[in-house]
């Protein structure tokens, strides 16, 4: 089904300055917009591993370089601060270990398959490695005894959630729920409140 729902560039950013956005909401979104545009030095990952993580995020989100939205730095910060989201699959090691192991494994398998670093590979070869990771069929010593398919689910969920928490990604999907003051009055099918823009293709 072909459906136009993207908002014109700048829509969400312009909204943030309006009274339709509460101070708490504005602060959260502007901080995120700002932080994702700053240079970032990894605090948890080694520099090479961080570059690799960034490349993985780019493929998973179908982003070019430079990406629309940076997410790898959020993962690095979370692991550095030892933050959790309330649960973990018992079948997996702690998140920090699973991330380290997966990045080491991707690098090893890239070398074994192509004689090259993961980050140096063309997109389709990177995607093939990620597909094997997702299916749990990826080969190599690093992956032994590790439920790669299960962790891929966690990795993809984290990367995807971080991306769609960003105002620019929300603009892409035509989301403007953050501009909720004073209320929504047009809530039924095919209804739009006056402040909601026309979507474009």
């Amino acid at each position: 089904m072909k459906i136009p729902t993207t908002y014109p560039p700048g829509t969400v950013r312009a909204l943030l300055d309006t009274p339709a956005v509460s101070p708490a909401t504005r602060k959260a979104l502007q901080q995120r917009l700002h932080a994702s545009q700053q240079p970032y030095e990894p605090r948890f990952f080694e520099p090479a591993a961080f570059v690799l993580l960034r490349a993985v995020c780019q493929r998973l989100l179908g982003q070019a370089d430079p990406p629309l939205v940076e997410v790898a730095y959020c993962i690095d910060t979370r692991l550095h601060l030892q933050q959790a989201d309330g649960w973990r699959y018992d079948a997996l090691p702690p998140d920090a270990d699973s991330y380290q192991l997966s990045l080491r494994g991707l690098q090893q398998t890239a070398q074994a398959r192509h004689g090259q670093d993961f980050v140096a590979l063309p997109g389709p070869a990177q995607d093939a490695l990620l597909t094997a990771f997702q299916r749990g069929t990826i080969e190599g010593k690093a992956w032994q005894g590790f439920d790669a398919a299960l962790f891929f689910q966690d990795l993809l969920a984290e990367v995807t959630s971080l991306f769609y928490a960003h105002p620019l990604a929300q603009e892409e999907i035509g989301y403007m729920g953050m501009a909720d003051l004073p209320n929504w009055t047009h809530i039924g099918l095919n209804q739009r409140d006056p402040r909601e823009p026309e979507p474009t293709d």
């Binding site: 459906i3 493929r59 995807t160 959630s161 999907i173 035509g174």
Partner: peptide, 29 residues
């Protein structure tokens, strides 16, 4: 809400890359 939905799409459908972005462009529908 969008992030909750995106998370479920990732876990439930395993979509990534352009397929993920294209699917979530339908969010309002």
């Amino acid at each position: 809400m969008p992030v909750t939905f995106a998370n479920q799409v990732a876990r439930g459908r395993g979509l990534w890359g352009p397929a993920l972005r294209d699917y979530l462009r339908q969010y309002n529908h």
